[in-house]
Amino acid sequence: MGNVVLNCVKKSFGSTEVIHGITIDIKDGEFIVIVGPSGCGKSTLLRMVAGLEVISSGEVQIAGKVVNDKEPMDRNIAMVFQNYALYPHMTVKQNMGYSLKLAGHSKSEIERKVSATADLLQLSELLERKPRQLSGGQRQRVAMGRAIVREPSVFLFDEPLSNLDAKLRVQMRLEIRQLQRQLGITSLYVTHDQVEAMTMADRMIVMNNGNAEQIGTPLEVYQKPETLFAAQFIGSPAMNIFDAEIQNGCLILNGLALTEVSLPDGKVALGIRPEHLVPSASGPIKVSLNNAEPLGANTLLYGNIKSSNEDITISMPGVHEISENEGDKSFGVEKAKIHLFCPSSGRRL
């Protein structure tokens, strides 16, 4: 059993509180991604679960037991570090077997477990090599192997793919996800890359400035972001945010009525994802386009809204080009695809 419970976990360095109370109930076998910009406290949160940072207040439970005061080695966790943290003077085999050796397993048992794990990760050929003789991807695999071989109840990943090149990253993220499903071990995965978060997570924690902005499945966060921050952080290219107003139950953007809403009058922040803007001659959003980025499958168009001069990004399927004189276009959006936020609190309305 490897369920993990965080109960209002806080962290302070001196008098500065950096994590303001995170609560989540992680089921056995779930893959949780903690995503956020650098400095948001996501690594600190992970290190508190690992036992590498003291928990200032709140409670961490692993497999039903409170582990606040337990040493990392007594928490039955394994961690994969950003720089892999392989022991440079040990071979791959020794690296993987080290924790088993410390736990007092017999030589033959260590041998058996290490070679089984090495088979799983296609590392069998490399067992006698030292870490410096391995490529980045191989080191990454060894770090994974070192974690797997212990059969922990929880895996902790601290940005494990950020040192790899783009292609390898895509491959490794698939592999990690498959392995995790296969082994069924509860995982916490820290990343700053929203694509990794979207593709890997069962549920994700979107963090900002030490707060959990939203906890939910990737699609929940994408389709129904709870805060302005979550809305802009998840999804690429980022969501367009405009200043809009509600007057008599009508959402008004730059003097033009967009749609009817059942909300009280006042100012709102209107969010529309670039891929949800569709060209229509009668559309209420008039844009002067000034740049196009063809990506092959789709094209990103950049421009300004005509009356307010706010920046806007539009993603259109297929190839589009803009010429000097036809840079002006009108766009519309479905009512279901608009997101409204309170401009002061950033909460979804």
Binding site: A50, G51, L52, E71, P72, M73, I77, A78, M79, F81, Q82, N83, A85, Y87, Y98, S99, L102, A103, R146, R150
Partner: peptide, 17 residues
């Protein structure tokens, strides 16, 4: 590197080990 020390702490090695 700090991370090596941390990795070995997680692996189960006490200070002198």
């Amino acid at each position: 590197p700090k991370s090596l020390i941390e990795a070995s702490a997680i692996d189960g090695a006490h200070f002198w080990r």
